[in-house]
Simulated assay, not measured.
Amino acid sequence: MKITYVLLHAYGMGGTIRTVINQANTMAAAGHEVRLASVVRRQAGSHFAIDPRVETVDVVTSGAGGEPGVQVPVGEPAKDVFTRTVEDTFAAFLQGLDDGVLVTTRPGLNLLAARHAPERLVRVAQDHMHLGRYKPAVRAAILDDYPRLDAVVSLTRGDRAEYDRALGGRVRTAHIPNPLHSLTAPRTDHTSKVVVAAGRLTRQKGFDLLIPAFAKVTDRHPDWRLRLYGSGKAENRLRKLIHLHHLYNHVFLMGRTRDLDRELSGSSIYALSSRFEGFPMTLLEALNCGLAVASFDCPTGPNEIIVTGENGLLVPHEDGDGLAAALCRLIEDAPLRRRLGEAARATAVRYGPDEIRSRWEALFTDLIEAKKAGAAGPSKSRGAQS
């Protein structure tokens, strides 16, 4: 089948970019005709490997500046990127697509696809966050325009249920999580006295909660270290927080890494301190490397992956003391770390690239058949139930 994936900017470091490229690569490897469209381009090359069988295209090939756009609502996190030039050029790109499946990957792109993509296409919106996080104007536009699409796909069962309630059955929904890039990641031996966390250095990721929690850990275990991988606008604030808690010999901002699997496998414990998530891929990657995990039970995702005491430890949302206690428990109980790590690897298998690809193929096939039959509406079928 012919599939076009659309990213706002395919050349950055974000989790959505990484997971959509993984999807495109897996589909191309399975023999599908795959195109990856980047609406704007700010860098020369991709941070992530793109399979040579994936055709890449830049939608806006000239300057993307100019007056503000009028179609993407205020509150879309990338609203400033959607200038009039970007909106109009992307609409023309959509109207020029002749057939196949179109997959858009953020609210602004999904809304423009709902309004401008021809009905001959199978139009699928991916939500890489969750409906409850969107500002009122964005949510209102979603409720108005998403029913024009053929399907809305959420990363978690909880978000799918929220879409079903909000949209009232006016569009088909499905739950398909993001895939791991591989199931052959290196594996930790649980001997390193290192806790690791990774993500953008922003408020969302809650590293400002993790650092004080780790101060409590070092009171009991001064030989353990915390390494934070990522970059972002909160870096200076986090450095000040490290010094405030006298953790300059215990907590290290490591910057970006191109080989997160290697860094994970050199650690023993993964900490997730996010205030909210769409679907926490770094958590899944830690499980894939066999790490024991301590995580906030934040919305959304962790409690659909982690069962406390079976494959990790969940603590109440934003409970820094609880997170510190969970980390200390894992540090002090090496057999528990190893047992949770073994179960973590088994959990990761459910998110392997081939497993997730088969779910996308089933959904796309069902939508194509429904389109041909003239029944591409809110009808449900086994292919969407997951």
Rank of each mutant, 00 (worst) to 15 (best):
T202L: 09
I176P: 04
A215N: 12
L149W: 04
T156N: 08
D164Y: 00
L210K: 10
L228I: 15
L201E: 05
M129Y: 04
D159L: 02
R187Y: 05
T156Y: 07
S192R: 14
D144R: 10
T191S: 15
P179G: 05
H181F: 02
K205N: 08
L209E: 09
L201I: 00
G169W: 01
K205I: 05
K135G: 12
H116Q: 11
I176D: 03
Y146G: 10
A198E: 04
D144L: 01
H190M: 03
P222S: 13
A185G: 01
R148V: 04
D223F: 02
A174W: 03
L112T: 12
A198W: 04
R227Q: 15
L180M: 04
V138T: 13
A141V: 01
I176G: 02
Q126E: 12
H128A: 14
R123W: 11
L201Y: 03
D189Y: 02
D144S: 06
Y146N: 06
R115P: 06
R165A: 12
R220I: 05
L131A: 13
L167S: 02
V194D: 03
V217L: 07
L209T: 11
H175S: 13
A185Q: 08
V196G: 12
A166E: 15
A137N: 05
A114Q: 08
E119K: 09
I142D: 02
P222K: 06
P222N: 11
S182P: 00
L228S: 10
L228D: 11
